[in-house]
Design a protein around this nucleic acid. Structure first.
Lengths: 195, 195, 195, 195
DNA sequence: TATGAATGAGTCTTCATTCAT
DNA sequence: AATGAATGAAGACTCATTCAT
């Protein structure tokens, strides 16, 4: 039974399970982490887990969903009302990198989810949304003649590829300064678009 | 016990296990695929698997190792003796896409391995090699004044990010024509480098 | 994970597993007895076993440990404050036989453990303790001039050899009256010592 | 199929399997040693084992049988035509210790066999024979009034208990000089008998 | 005689999930 | 809301034994 109404204490517990799960999934992987590991890390009984979540899968889904929402919110805040579509792309790049830098666990989880039959569909839907945002800016830039006519979807994915890879290699793994990485990502992508 | 002496029949069986494992790992994921699934798909007893591999992990490692070798070989063949470093990068991009198009299973396996504590180290070592190849070309181009001075490692990773993402989204998932994808990847990356 | 906190019910279950394991190990041997056999005999699920013990090996170790403690306690009670060292040896002999008569399973288990690479070390340490007790009495008797000077350790082992063998052949296998056996063991050993 | 007639080469192979099996069983135990280990140690294929023995159990049985015969032969040689029954016991003690010192593997194997449902019966029959030899000497000594009237079987087992234990602890485990051990065993047992 | 290959039942162990309290 | 206990299917791996060559 998924609890509809939670007492404040209940909400905290749920958050704690979410955080702990995220941390362990990121560190060891989803399959190698057992529900037992999660509740054990918190020091509560196994029943607690199933009081707040229907299954282990559900915990991951929740993580995916909330991560996506937060990232999205951050990106939209970053865009503000910037009228220049290319500037919007630049801002989106640095907002994404910055957000991931603060949510490393989510990044790892997303990486895993992308390779898993069960979660890939959810993830793809999420990605589609981010992608279409980027593609919209690109189309606008094309309409304005700022960049050459090319498949906007493919370009969007190329940009996301750059972001993903640099995030993983520099932000997550080497803890590099986000701004430095963002700058290169921006210049590489912008030039890649405009030539 | 890696069997040293294998009869032709044994070699075939080993290859068959490798292929079948690759295919199932790619389709369902490593953890969700059991050794039972693999031998069941071939229609042999469970012991057969362990005659050829020490463990399920070893099978994946072998897959990773041979995949890396083959991809590398393909890339080097593609480079030929091309003197222009930027051309070499272009050729590397299309060679990679082409190879992955023919080895979709390996791509998926690599994706998974990157998220797994046990295999990530091996994978990273492999990636390091490909990355240093790319970075070498970049340094040469910088020395020649063909592209601006920037961190060559970071640029190499940006390029690989583009390749990886477009491979996944177009070559693997949508079965798009490799040449079309390669062209965009090349133009995006080359412009990204040269501005 | 040795469960720290066990409810009364849990303690009972643990005892039950210990008893059942001891009984089956004694009857069929350690290796030929599977965890499945143990839980099957009790009529519970397989997981129950691993809730209380980390492994099959651990169950045997626990058995060895507790058996040793109990035997030791019984021997010490038997000695009381008997001042005569040779009398103490006599009492030790009958106490051991009596204890084994009540714990036949443990005797068989000890016999097996002595032949097993994994458990022999533990067992030997236990035996060392009993042996040094006996040797102490012997040294005292030698100091008193009650018995001739000989290697006390070797003598102690000879005595334990007599006890072990008669226990096995008469107490365990033929269910002979303990007192009769004890009497012969005592007279044989005491004369063996004093001549 | 048990081979009836063996070529000289075949006899050697069989001996080699017997020796290797004995050595591994003694070292690691019967159950933990696999047929694979045995043939692997020799460097031959698994089929070889089953060419010479019907099963792993059969190998152990053969070991038990031949060991018993050899030990018996040695003891009888040692007795010669010694007319004094107590002297015969003394000689039997040292002959046993000496033989075990040269056949440590067999000693360990016997120890194991005694704890195993399958082999204990065979072993017991063997022991019965040695025991009745000893008992015969004892009865003669009793008839001669050399030792007091006591259960000869129980005494014989006490003596064998001493031999077994000292063999294990000193001859096998500490590689002690056999003569020294034999002397103590003889004096302890003889005094134990005669008082 | 001997080998590499294969079988498949069986072993220990894990783990998501449920339940009684 | 939480706990200790229990379930049992499933997983990785082993191994005595057999077979084709």
């Amino acid at each position: 039974m998924v609890r509809a109404k939670l007492t404040p204490r209940g909400k905290d517990r749920r958050e704690q399970l979410l955080r702990t799960g995220a941390s362990l999934f990121a560190e060891r992987g989803f399959h190698p982490t057992s529900v037992s590991d999660i509740v054990g890390a918190i020091g509560v009984g196994k029943g607690v887990f199933y009081w707040y979540f229907q299954s282990k899968d559900e915990l991951l889904s929740e993580l995916l969903k909330s991560g996506h929402h937060e990232l999205r919110k951050r990106q939209q805040q970053a865009l503000g009302d910037e009228p220049d579509p290319l500037r919007r792309i630049e801002r989106g790049i640095s907002a994404s990198l910055a957000w991931f830098a603060e949510h490393r666990d989510y990044f790892s989880i997303i990486q895993f989810a992308a390779t898993d039959e069960t979660f890939a569909p959810v993830l793809h839907r999420n990605e589609e949304i981010g992608l279409s945002d980027t593609a919209r800016h690109l189309k606008e830039a094309m309409a304005d003649g700022r960049i050459a006519d090319q498949d906007p979807d493919m370009l969007a994915r190329a940009i996301h590829g750059v972001i993903g890879r640099l995030t993983r290699d520099y932000v997550i793994e080497r803890n590099e300064d986000v701004d430095v990485v963002a700058e290169l990502a921006q210049s590489f992508c912008l030039r890649g678009l405009t030539g």
